[in-house]
Design a binder for these strands. Structure first.
Lengths: 348, 348
DNA sequence: TTAAAAAACTAAAACGATTTAGATTATTTT
DNA sequence: AAAATAATCTAAATCGTTTTAGTTTTTTAA
C-alpha cells in the first residue's frame, strides 16, 4: 500500500477532468438530483473507491456545521447503570452514523458545566445528559445556543424540557407496597445525597405515598439521606445505633444501588442477617444483585428503552430543530419489580 | 443573554479594529512571541472573554489537522472491566484536554474494522484499542496512515507495536501456584473463545507452566475453551458430565470473569459447593467477586495504571510522532492475587 | 437552420481558523 | 534629519468541503 497524499475532492476532480462541485454532488448521492450523467457518476464513484476517498470531516463540518457526534454526560461511566446506558446509546448512535463522546461529571457541578461547555465547543450536534446540577443555567445556555439535548434519569420539575425517565414514584411505591404486603409495618427509606436530585426525591415520594395509602404510621425518622461521599460509614453508624436501640426497622427501601451495596457490607460486618433480621428492596437491577446471598429484590429500570428513546428523540431534534421547536418530548417509562430473596414474609 | 451570532475571530478583530491574525496570535497565547503589545493583548483577551468566544474546532482542525479527540475501541463498554478502563482513560484524557470517543466491537472482527475506519474518518488524533481481530491488517492501515495507536489488554506476538498490558503469564502462574500450595493436584483451566486472543493464550501458558514447575501431572483434558456465545450451557455440560463421571477437578483456574460468573450459576444449579467441592481462582477483580458467597479469590489487574500509561504513551506519540517513529513503547504491568474465600486447603 | 428547452457541468464564494511573508509605525543611532 | 533598527501589526493564502448562481453543451421543436 503506497502512502498517497490525502485524497481530496479536488484531486479526484483533477484526475477525472471534472469540477469538484460535480464530485461533491456525486459523493453525496445527489448526482441524479443535479442531473449528472450516469456515466460520469460511475467514473467518480469508481475512482473514489479505488483511492479510498474519505471526505475531510473538518472541512465538511465547517461548511455544513454538523459533526455527527453527540455528547453523553453522566456522573460515572464505571457505574454499572450508566455503563449499560452508555452501551445502548452507543449502539443506537452508531446505527445512525453518529459517534458518542462520553464525559464523567463525578457529581460535581462545576465539572459538569465545564464538560458541557467543552462539548459545545467541540460542536457536538446534541447532548444526552444525566445532570447533577442544582439549577438550570446550563440548560438555558444550551437552549440559548439552540443545541438540542435530552435529559435522562434526572429531571427538573420546574424547567420543562425533553426527557426520558422512569416513573420513580410508581417504582418506589411498588417496592414499598410489596414490603407492606409481605407484612412489614416499620419500613425505612434510605436515599442518597445530593437530596435535590429528582430520582431521590421521587423515590422518597413513592415510598411515602405507599405508606400513607396503606394507612401505616408514617415516621419521619425512618427516612435517611446518606451522604454520597461517605456511604459506608454513615450507614454503619445509623444501623449500629438503631441496633443498639433495638429500633431497627423490619425492612428498608433503598433508593440507590450504591447504598444497597454498602448496606450489605454493613449488615455482614454487624452480623445482621438479610432477610431474617431485615428485609430489603433496592432500586436498580445491577448484575451483583443476582449474585449476592441472598439475591436482592429490586426495582428494575428498562435501560435499553431509556437509551433508545433518548437517542431517537435527540436525533429527531437534530434533524429538524425548527419543526420541533416549542414541542416537548417527555417520556416516562415503567419499572418492574424483580422478586428475589431479600424479603422475608412477616406474620402480624 | 442575547443570542448573538456566533462570535468568530474576524468579529473580534473588526470590533477592535485589528487584524484577525493578531487576534489569533493572542488567543493562542503567542502574543508575546509575536511582539503584540501588552495593551492590545489585554483588549483582545477582554473582549473575547466578554463575548464568550470559542474557536470553531472545525476551522481549527481543518487548518492544523488535529481534533484533540482520541478513540477507544473495546469489545463492550458495559463489561465492568472495560467500563473502569474507560472511566480512567477519560479522566486522563480530559485532564489533557482531549475528548474520548468510545466504540464497542462486540468481539466482531468486521465491526471493529468498520469502527476503526470510521474513527480515522472522524480524524481522531490517535487510538487506544483492545482488539478482537485475528490478523494485523487494521494495524498496518493505521501505521500506513501514520495514526498513532496503543494496544491495551490484548496484543499480537508477531506484530510489535506500542502496548500496555499485564503480565498474564505470571498472573495465571501465581493463581495456579496458589492452588497448588493449597494442596490441589488436579486443577482445570477454563479459557474463553476466540482462542487466539493473547490474554487467553498467555493465561493458559501461565497455568501450564505452574503445573510443570511443580512437577504435577499435566493433563491436556483439564483445559477447556468455553465458547463466548454460549458460556453458561457449555460450562453446564462440562461440569455435569464430569460430576457424573466423578472426574471433577478439585480446583479450576478461570481465565476470564464472565466464565467465572457462569460457573457460579452452574455450581449453584448443580448443587456443587464452592469451595467445599471445588476451589476456584478467577482472573479480573470485578465488583461482584467481593459480594458473592463465597467471595472469589482472583488475579487483579492494575486498571488505573493500564489506563494512565496508555493515555500517556498515546499523547506522547501524538505530540511528537516523528521523534518516536521506530521506537516502541511496551509496558507490561504486574497483577496481584487477591485472596478471598473460594479456595479450600486440601491435605494430601 | 435557428430558437428554445433540457441536460450536464462549473467558477467562485463561503465556512473560520492559522500562518507566511511582509508592511507600517515608532524608536535609536549617527 | 536621515538611516538603521526594533516594535507592532496585517494581507492574503490556505485547509477541503458545500452551495449558489450561473455557463456550456446537447437535444428538441418549429
Amino acid at each position: 500500500m503506497t502512502h498517497l497524499k490525502n485524497v481530496s475532492l479536488s484531486y479526484i476532480a483533477e484526475e477525472l477532468g471534472v469540477s469538484k462541485t460535480l464530485v461533491s454532488m456525486v459523493m453525496n448521492g445527489n448526482g441524479d438530483k443535479y442531473g449528472i450523467s450516469k456515466k460520469t457518476q460511475e467514473r467518480v464513484l469508481k475512482l473514489a473507491k479505488d483511492l479510498d476517498y474519505k471526505p475531510n470531516q473538518f472541512a465538511r463540518g465547517l461548511r455544513i456545521g454538523k459533526s455527527n457526534t453527540i455528547g453523553l454526560v453522566v456522573s460515572d461511566i464505571s457505574n454499572s447503570f450508566y455503563a449499560r446506558i452508555a452501551r445502548h446509546i452507543e449502539d443506537y448512535c452508531s446505527q445512525q452514523d453518529y459517534n458518542l463522546i462520553i464525559c464523567n461529571s463525578d457529581e460535581n457541578q462545576e465539572k459538569e458545566i465545564k464538560i458541557i461547555n467543552n462539548l459545545i465547543n467541540k460542536q457536538v450536534d446534541g447532548l444526552i445528559i444525566s445532570s447533577t446540577i442544582n439549577d438550570t443555567k446550563h440548560l438555558e445556555l444550551l437552549n440559548g445556543k439552540d443545541i438540542p439535548f435530552v435529559l435522562i434519569d434526572r429531571i427538573y420539575r420546574d424547567y420543562p424540557c425533553n426527557h426520558v425517565i422512569v416513573d420513580n414514584i410508581q417504582g418506589a411505591k411498588d417496592a414499598t407496597s410489596y414490603l407492606i404486603r409481605k407484612g412489614h409495618r416499620n419500613i425505612a427509606c434510605f436515599t442518597i445525597s445530593p437530596k435535590y436530585i429528582s430520582t431521590q426525591v421521587d423515590r422518597y415520594l413513592g415510598y411515602r405515598s405507599a405508606i400513607e395509602e396503606h394507612h401505616l404510621h408514617f415516621n419521619r425518622k425512618n427516612h435517611e439521606v446518606i451522604p454520597r461521599d461517605d456511604i459506608y460509614n454513615s450507614i454503619f453508624r445509623i444501623i449500629k445505633i438503631r441496633k443498639n436501640n433495638k429500633s431497627l426497622p423490619t425492612a428498608i427501601f433503598l433508593a440507590n444501588n450504591q447504598i444497597t451495596l454498602s448496606l450489605l457490607k454493613v449488615c455482614s460486618d454487624l452480623e445482621i442477617n438479610i432477610p431474617e433480621d431485615i428485609s430489603i428492596v433496592s432500586f436498580d437491577d445491577i448484575e451483583v444483585f443476582s449474585f449476592t446471598k441472598p439475591s436482592i429484590t429490586c426495582v428494575s429500570q428498562p435501560i435499553e428503552s431509556i437509551s433508545q428513546n433518548a437517542v431517537k428523540i435527540l436525533l429527531e431534534l437534530i434533524g429538524k430543530a425548527d419543526m420541533y421547536k416549542g414541542t416537548l418530548k417527555q417520556i416516562s417509562l415503567e419499572t418492574s419489580l424483580i422478586k428475589r430473596h431479600s424479603v422475608k414474609k412477616i406474620n402480624n
